[in-house]
Each structure stands twice: as C-alpha cells, then as structure tokens.
C-alpha cells in the first residue's frame, strides 16, 4: 500500500471541495471495497477523503411520497435492520442482510456499494429493478443511466453520492446465488412489480448489472414464475469463469428470477 494524505471533512460541501483539490484522490466510506483494493495495490490514490464526518448529514432512512430515501452513508446493517425498509420494501432489507458478513454489513455503505459498481455486488440489481434515482452533490441520475461497465458509473470525477431514492413497488423479491467462497453474487435477480409494469434487475451474471426486457414483458402479462420457463437468457454477454461458466449463469438467471417472483411480496 502506498502512502496517501488523509482528509477528514465535516460537510458534503467540504468533502467535495477537498476532493476537487487533490490530483488523484478518492472518497473513503466504509472501506469494505476500497481498503482491499489498496491492500492489493490495485489503486494508489494520492489522497483519501474520509466521509466519516458526514455521517450525521448522510446516514438516514426515510419515506417521501412513494419513495424510500436512503442516505449514502447508511450501512448495509442499518438497511437490513430498518423497520421502515422492512415495511416499505421488505425485499431490500433482505438484500442488505445478505451482503458479505456481519463485519462488512456494519461498515459498508449503500453509497460506497453503488459508486464502486462491483459486477457481483447486490445493490445494482435493486437500483435497476426499483427504478431508483441516485442523488449526488450536483444532480440526480436515473437508474438506467447509472451503471456503465465493470466498476464504471455515470459519476464524474469527484462527484459525491448523497442519497439513493427507491420507488416503492407493489411487490418485489430478490434472490441471490452466492459464490461459495466470496459470498458475492454469482447471480442475483431482483424482480419488482409496478402496476402493469415489471422491472427485472440482474447482477453478478455479467460485467455490469442489467435489465431483462423479455422477462419484464412476460411477467407484466402474468406475474407468475412459470411464464419464464420458455425464455432463454443469452449467454453471450455473461461472465464465463471457471467458478461459474456462462451457460450455468444463464440458467441460474432463470432459476433465480423464478424464485424471486415466487418470493415477491
């Protein structure tokens, strides 16, 4: 790990301007993705801008209209344990409770997870299925515009996520197939029903989270796992690794989508 300068701003504005003043700085939230990256020397930031001082400002869970609003520094454990989340979008609490292990959930944050855009992370499936908007220090970004590629998002250099807003579905379900070693998703499928529309977000299977229009159309006609049986998921863009080859992942997308529909409430 290379040396870096450590900053401890106290406000969002302060954090953004501090970060702007660095040549190759990074925000540090829960550190559950960034610290491993530093330890493996996969990145050598000149500066770390700690967001710990923003906890008061950016750690919250609230309901505004038909939206569940979660501050960027809210931990996975807070989301998993929140009565508000369990009431408004119970499947999101299920998702958060399945991230990593207790230590990871106690430190890792929703903002960090979304910004990091790990192809096997859980939240990206929720962002897509629950038609979320990502609020930053300067704008709001729609779910469908946010994830660009592996570890790549629509965020500009130095742009800080402040909150994530999820649309409350009529019902929704999330199911994840764990990699047995890392517990990240080999495949995770989030299914959400909004009146006549259905959104399906898939994570883990490809290098970036994606939606499945074929599944969405079929489920919009009938929200029943059986309607997915005949629809083939293309292997083409799926991750093809020794741990889980593309054909296996494709099949698991269908299996877990069906199970997510079954679990939806």
């Amino acid at each position: 790990m290379e040396n870096f300068v450590f900053h401890t701003p106290k406000t969002v504005a302060d954090a953004v301007s501090t970060r702007k003043g660095t040549s190759g700085g990074k925000f540090l939230a829960g550190g559950q993705s960034l610290i491993p990256v530093l330890k493996l020397d996969l990145a050598q930031p000149t500066d770390l801008v700690s967001l710990a001082g923003l906890k008061k400002e950016l750690s919250y869970i609230k309901v505004e209209g038909d939206e569940l609003v979660i501050g960027a520094l809210t931990t996975h454990a807070d989301v998993a344990g929140s009565d508000v989340v369990k009431k408004i979008i119970p499947s999101l609490a299920v998702l958060a409770s399945g991230i990593g292990d207790a230590q990871v959930r106690n430190r890792g944050t929703i903002g960090g997870s979304v910004a990091h855009a790990d192809p096997a992370a859980d939240y990206p499936a929720a962002i897509l299925a629950l038609d979320a908007t990502i609020k930053t220090d300067r704008r709001t970004i729609k779910a469908d515009d946010f994830f660009k590629a592996m570890f790549e998002t629509a965020l500009e250099d130095g742009e800080l996520i402040t909150e994530v807003r999820f649309k409350k579905p009529e019902k929704a379900g999330y199911l994840k197939f764990n990699n047995p070693a890392s517990k990240y998703a080999i495949v995770g499928v989030y299914v959400a029903k909004y009146g006549p529309n259905v959104r399906v977000g898939v994570t883990g299977a490809a290098t970036v989270a994606f939606r499945l229009p074929d599944f969405e159309a079929a489920l919009a006609k009938s929200f029943d796992p059986k309607v997915l049986d005949g629809i083939k998921v293309s292997e083409e863009d799926l991750v093809n690794e020794r741990d889980a080859k593309a054909d296996y992942r494709a099949q698991m997308v269908t299996v877990f989508a069906k199970r997510a529909v079954e679990a939806a409430h």
């Binding site: 990699n179 047995p180 070693a181 890392s182 020794r242 741990d243």
Partner: peptide
C-alpha cells in the same frame, strides 16, 4: 464439497485467495 487448489496449464494457482478458494 468446497476446497480445490486448481492450477492452469501454465502453473498458475487459480484459487490463490479466499475470494475463490472456498474454506
């Protein structure tokens, strides 16, 4: 059920971390 030290043809250990060597 879980553990395997798998080498590729070039002698690289493919499961050289807890991310893919399942304890």
């Amino acid at each position: 059920l879980l553990e395997e030290a798998a080498y590729d043809e070039d002698g690289q250990l493919l499961t050289a971390s807890f991310m893919n060597y399942t304890m």
